[in-house]
Design a protein around this nucleic acid. Structure first.
Lengths: 247, 247
DNA sequence: TATAGTTGTCTATATCAATAGACAAATTTT
DNA sequence: AAAATTTGTCTATTGATATAGACAACTATA
């Protein structure tokens, strides 16, 4: 891969051990180290990255706590982690169907819900008046017991009154929308960015501080083009990649 | 916005000032602070993020060096930066046409080129034998004099011999492919992830260490479905967002 | 012209991050 | 059994990070 051995930056606000932990994660996701295989010994990694052995140990300690690596005294340090989930994005993006074949179990957990006045951004997306009541759902997507996404979703409160109950019962957006007479819907637009996870995402996604999240901001519409749902979703970049499919 | 005031994480490998700088960048890109407007005073920011005023000053210092902010003694600290570029991704993704209307000038600069044996990943993508010769181009996308992308691109060396010369002359992938009889092509697949920028990206994209890059891995094909180009592109997350359009 | 509000600079202190070296403990190889 | 390899633990030192407080310099406003 490009620049596996490229140098590390100093005094930049990101500690060396965190940068090296990122590199190792990247290398694993890239397939540079096979699953269950041993990492190069600490001294070799220290030399490769141009740092002290103790610094490498800090990186390994962080990844061990995340469950990515496992060190065994006298033997070596081994790769535990599975490959990244590939999350498809397209016109018919749905949480459950998207991960079929990659996981055996998946659902959406409703963390909390509230009703609030629509912000400018939400009002524009849903094509309603600014300040009109909207229902806000905080959810977490789970696959095989692992958190793979954290989303904030808004619905027009007038049209979708009680959708939080439906979500709690069904664990599915698609199923909840059916109760309101919507049997099909399309992804209208998706905008993508990335940032460091905030405290809330860290807790909900079981990430170590400093982790990166992919952020999608999307609008779903009925077949008639009427906007029904606005959502901001965060995906842990170290566990998930987004695969763009036909819209 | 969601969690603008959510708390900052400590002893996580990312320094507080870097985290706060990220937050401010995010807030600006979100439109929370208007262009040319004053930021809240340092004491207010310190209180909002729950840190010392000096820590906020470190964050502001970093953003000042990046040209995002400008502090004036006695008056306040002002937002210099423009909004993020929105980079469309879809079936007809092309660098130049994609940014039309957002910038007045754009082109691709060829940084270097080489011929190398195809790795497993490249060979599979281009549907050629592993180890067969491929041409590798290192390029930088520029818009209005600002670096907006950094890409590594591979072509089958047998079919596209001399394409590096075409790229250097035309500054365009589309124009270069025309010389090889390819008048149209489609984006076959795109996979998306994010990571911290490595040293090479930092230099090429004029980023401060610790910055995040969005990474796309894409295959372009002819109208017949024959793969012609494999590319990994990096976009600075603080300056660019990706807008998904129809594939 | 005061006064309040804001950024700039300085000193001091405590903790985290990184380097350095030495040796113990466990495992594998010779 | 001995040697080599690898992870684990300890001490010590240096520089970066973060907090705290005080005051100077500058700007806008009452």
């Amino acid at each position: 891969m490009v620049g596996l051995a490229s140098s590390i930056e100093r005094r930049n606000g990101v500690s060396l051990w965190r940068q090296i932990a990122d590199r190792i994660l990247q290398a694993i996701a890239n397939g540079d180290f096979a699953e269950n295989a041993a990492l190069p010994p600490e001294i070799a990694l220290a030399e490769r990255y141009g740092v002290n052995r103790h610094t490498v140990r800090s990186a390994i300690a962080a990844l061990t706590q995340e469950g990515v690596l496992k060190a065994e005294q006298g033997r070596g340090t081994f790769v535990m982690s599975r490959k990244r989930l590939s999350y498809p994005i397209g016109a018919r993006t749905r949480f459950s169907t998207g991960l079929q074949g990659q996981t055996s179990e998946r659902h959406i957990a409703l963390l909390s819900s509230s009703t609030e006045p629509a912000s400018r951004r939400v009002a524009e997306a849903l094509d309603i008046a600014r300040g009109a009541a909207v229902i806000r759902l905080e959810t977490r997507g789970e696959a095989d017991g692992h958190a793979v996404s954290r989303a904030t979703t808004w619905f027009d409160a007038k049209r979708f009154a009680g959708i939080e109950t439906a979500m709690a019962e069904t664990g599915s957006i698609t199923a909840s929308l059916k109760r309101f007479g919507i049997n099909d819907y399309l992804r209208h637009s998706t905008v993508l960015s990335a940032r460091h996870a905030d405290a809330d995402d860290l807790a909900a996604l079981d990430l170590q501080p400093g982790a990166i999240v992919l952020v999608t901001i999307a609008v779903n519409v009925t077949l008639d083009g009427e906007p029904i749902q606005f959502a901001e979703s965060r995906f842990p970049a170290e566990r998930v990649e987004l695969k763009l499919s036909a819209l």
